[in-house]
Design a protein around this nucleic acid. Structure first.
Lengths: 233, 233
DNA sequence: CGACTGATTGACTGCCCTCAAATAGGGTGG
DNA sequence: CCACCCTATTTGAGGGCAGTCAATCAGTCG
């Protein structure tokens, strides 16, 4: 029951097509020559941590594929609160739009968490490539469908779950997505504030709830890190 | 600032292509002969009021285009609460998915409000048509992008707005979408309960808030109907 | 060993939901 | 035309979840 359904690895493309060993469902069903054409058209761009790759509302002037690193997609409320949508991990594509004359506005903001390597296609070449390779358009379409499903799940979670439930859910999903399995459980590098933002909960509610779970022995806390003993909720 | 951005009439197709005079952005950029091929492949189906056309979670075995009538798209929480997504008006397409081997599950439930005429393409012909006409795939993709933007707006509204604000917003949007302009303002055929469901607010909160607005002279209420004097909020 | 940032804890507040009970529209049948 | 019923709606009282504010504590890094 993952909240985040990213566009990675449903059917693996041929392995090691890139020097990076990058796999992505964006390449599903494409011939190696076609993939090479894609890669040739892409610019590789390196982003430092906490850098905005695309900003909600601005024209979608490019399409992206995360090669290495990590990023997060979120929306901003008029009051400036961030509404977490999903993590973006290597292999995930974003910024693809329906074919139009003009770039439509971005739906969400995407920001790196750590140093990341991103393949970038500008608007024109993205348009050209997706019209040249119908399979690619289909794959981009599938990525959009996944985003739609993902946002829908976030919506339902926000509408029907309590603060405690949303926190629990975010913990489990973050463990799946960005957790490192250690000797005593799953370690997640997140501050209380990160977790609170993602779950849509105040910093204090998050702190109180996490403390309660720690008292019950479900997890242990270090500064800026959470150690989840098991994934039961 | 419409919450609902449906797939209608961005650039009009040639007029009166159908006996119904149906226009839809689904036909954008298609030649008349192509549109005829589309229509020939479609089955016309009439739904009585309050009939479910597609149900969330079930395989998306068809693609739809509403010709006449009205419908609503919503999601269900595990507790059975309905989360309103958007109205569906004539010209709106829904149920289109990314090209896949198997039909993916529907993202939302779509239900008629009144008797409606719907064009239906089954899974196979939908797949065949969208691969035959790249422009059609693009248009279906655009419809999906609109749904994504729409759900995102609902999400942000749910996360950042108070009950009062959400009610106001739903009133204005419903006025745009399904209101009839009368002599004294815009009439909307909605019960308190409908409005409360859509805004994600309890029946009582809706009643209290509407009464307050009525006292202030912003609107008048009849049983099962709301008369909005102006659209200011 | 400061200093800064992250985390904790308690007290208070407020929005909005729940429940109960009464009221009013509006159609229907006599 | 009126009585009646079903449903929509109103209104009040009470309560709970979770947010806000304030003050303190603790970990890490220079």
């Amino acid at each position: 029951m993952a909240l985040v359904m990213n566009a990675n690895l449903t059917r693996p493309a041929s392995p090691n097509l890139l020097p990076l060993g990058l796999r992505s469902s964006l390449f599903d069903g494409l011939a190696p020559s076609e993939i090479n054409a894609l890669l040739a058209a892409a610019r590789k761009r390196r982003f430092p941590p906490h850098e905005v790759i695309q900003r909600e509302g601005e024209p979608a002037t490019g399409s992206f594929l995360l090669a290495t690193g990590r990023a997060v997609a979120y929306k901003l409320t008029p009051e400036g609160e961030r509404v977490f949508l999903h993590w973006i991990v290597p292999g995930d594509a974003f910024g693809f739009t329906a074919p139009r004359r003009k770039p439509p506005p971005c739906v969400a903001t995407v920001q790196t968490l750590r140093e990341s390597l991103v393949l970038v296609w500008d608007w024109e070449s993205s348009l050209a490539l997706t019209s040249q390779f119908p399979q690619l358009r289909g794959n981009a379409c599938a990525a959009m469908a996944n985003h739609l499903a993902s946002v829908s799940r976030v919506l339902v979670a926000r509408c029907s779950q309590t603060a405690r439930q949303r926190l629990a859910r975010m913990l489990v999903e973050s463990a799946d997505q960005i957790g490192r399995t250690g000797s005593e459980g799953i370690e997640i590098d997140l501050t209380n504030e990160d977790l609170a933002d993602m779950a849509g909960v105040s910093l204090f509610t998050a702190s109180r709830q996490l403390s309660e779970w720690q008292r019950k022995g479900i997890l242990a806390k270090r500064r800026g890190r959470i150690l989840l003993h098991s994934r039961n909720v």
